[in-house]
Amino acid sequence: MTKDILVKAIDVTKSFDAFKALDKVSLEVRRGEVACIVGPSGSGKSTFLRCINLLERMDEGAIWVNDELMGYRREGDNLHELADREISRQRRRIGMVFQRFNLFPHQTAVENVMEGPVQVLGQPAAKAREDALALLARVGLSDKANHYPSELSGGQQQRVAIARAMGMQPDLILFDEPTSALDPELVSEVLDVMKDLAASGMTMIVVTHEMGFARNVANTVTFMEAGKVVETGPASEVLSAPKSARTAEFIRAVHN
Rank of each mutant, 00 (worst) to 15 (best):
Gln157Thr: 02
Ile162His: 00
Ile162Val: 09
Ile162Gly: 00
Arg164His: 08
Arg164Trp: 03
Ala165Lys: 14
Met166Ile: 13
Met166Asp: 11
Met166His: 10
Met166Phe: 10
Gly167Ile: 00
Gln169Ala: 15
Pro170Tyr: 06
Asp171Ala: 13
Leu172Glu: 07
Ile173Trp: 06
Ile173Met: 07
Ile173Ser: 03
Leu174Val: 04
Leu174Ile: 06
Asp176Tyr: 12
Glu177Ser: 04
Pro178Arg: 09
Thr179Asp: 13
Ser180Phe: 03
Ser180Val: 05
Ala181Val: 02
Leu182Val: 08
Asp183Val: 02
Pro184Phe: 13
Pro184Asn: 13
Pro184Trp: 12
Glu185Gly: 12
Glu185Cys: 10
Leu186Asp: 01
Leu186Tyr: 01
Leu186Met: 10
Val187Met: 05
Ser188Lys: 12
Ser188Phe: 08
Ser188Ala: 14
Glu189Gly: 11
Val190Leu: 09
Leu191Gly: 08
Leu191Ala: 09
Leu191Ser: 08
Leu191Asp: 08
Leu191Asn: 07
Val193Trp: 05
Val193Ser: 10
Val193Pro: 09
Met194His: 02
Met194Gly: 02
Lys195Phe: 01
Lys195Ser: 07
Asp196Ile: 01
Asp196Gly: 02
Asp196Asn: 04
Leu197Pro: 05
Leu197Arg: 07
Ala198Tyr: 10
Ala198Gly: 12
Ala199Tyr: 11
Ala199Glu: 15
Ala199Met: 14
Ser200Trp: 01
Ser200Asp: 06
Ser200Lys: 02
Met202Trp: 11
Thr203Glu: 06
Met204Ala: 11
Met204Arg: 08
Met204Gln: 13
Ile205Gly: 02
Ile205Tyr: 01
Val207Phe: 01
Val207Glu: 00
Val207Arg: 01
Thr208Lys: 03
Glu210Lys: 11
Met211Cys: 10
Gly212Asn: 07
Gly212Thr: 03
Phe213Asn: 06
Ala214Lys: 13
Ala214Phe: 13
Ala214Glu: 13
Arg215Pro: 09
Asn216Trp: 14
Asn216Arg: 15
Asn216Lys: 15
Val217Cys: 09
Ala218Tyr: 10
Asn219Leu: 07
Asn219Trp: 08
Asn219Val: 08
Asn219Ser: 11
Thr220Ala: 14
Val221Phe: 12
Val221Glu: 12
Thr222Gln: 08
Phe223Tyr: 14
Phe223His: 08
Met224Glu: 04
Met224Thr: 05
Ala226Trp: 11
Ala226Arg: 15
Ala226Met: 14
Lys228Phe: 11
Lys228Trp: 14
Val230Ala: 02
Val230Tyr: 01
Glu231Val: 02
Glu231Trp: 03
Glu231Leu: 02
Glu231Tyr: 02
Gly233Gln: 04
Ala235Val: 05
Ala235Glu: 05
Ala235Gly: 07
Ser236Met: 11
Ser236Pro: 07
Ser236His: 14
Glu237Phe: 10
Glu237Leu: 14
Glu237Thr: 14
Glu237Asn: 14
Ala241Trp: 05
Ala241Ile: 04
Pro242Ala: 00
Pro242Cys: 00
Lys243Gln: 11
Lys243Ala: 10
Ser244Cys: 00
Ser244Asp: 02
Ser244Asn: 01
Ser244Lys: 01
